[in-house]
Amino acid sequence: MDFAGAYSIDHLKFLLEGFGLTLYMAVIAIICSFIIGAVIAIIRYAKVPVISQILAVIVEIIRNLPLLLLIFFTYLALPDIGIKFNPIPAAIIALTIFEAAMLSEIIRSGLNSIDKGQIEAARSSGLNYIQTLWHIILPQALRRMVPPIVSQFISLLKDTSLAVVVSVPELLHSGQIIYGQKQAYLVPILLLIVMMYFVVNYALSILSRRLEVKNT
């Protein structure tokens, strides 16, 4: 094991660049998937006819497939029907679709956990349905959903590592290139990669617990 050689300045810079892309993909996918997930959840909660049934089927299919399959599908199969993406957008899109399906289920169960009587009370005090959802139901539901949502974000950040299979130069890919050079780099580089993911995800999980304590 060659720790000194493995952790040379050039290698560290190379890994950090990869990690930068990992975080970039995660942030975009988190924002997009949260918004899409919330919209799906609200449509299904409000039981908009037809659309909510169609969404239910799509969500059920997507969240029951391996993310790896979705990434390959987006990148390698969709071009067969004329929809084409570069590796990074393909990975972000696959991540977004997958996590949006997962998040929509979390948000929907959060919405369902709010006492329905509150809707009637709010409506009878003159708010319309949308206002009721926006001002009364959503804020309460979101508060309850903070821990599962944050752990979904952590999952997403971890899942960006799967982009390595379509040659996205993210953290794990950078690592593979370095440890591919010399056997003695293998363990040190794997250790460093583990620590980089751990530090960011652990910080997120601590943040989630703080928010949870504050809200209760």
Partner: peptide, 19 residues
């Protein structure tokens, strides 16, 4: 968040259609 999303996803699409 919506703006960032649109910007992010939009630029992704631009890349995607570069071909």
């Amino acid at each position: 968040a919506a703006v960032i999303m649109l910007a992010g996803c939009g630029s992704g699409n631009d890349d995607g259609n570069a071909g």
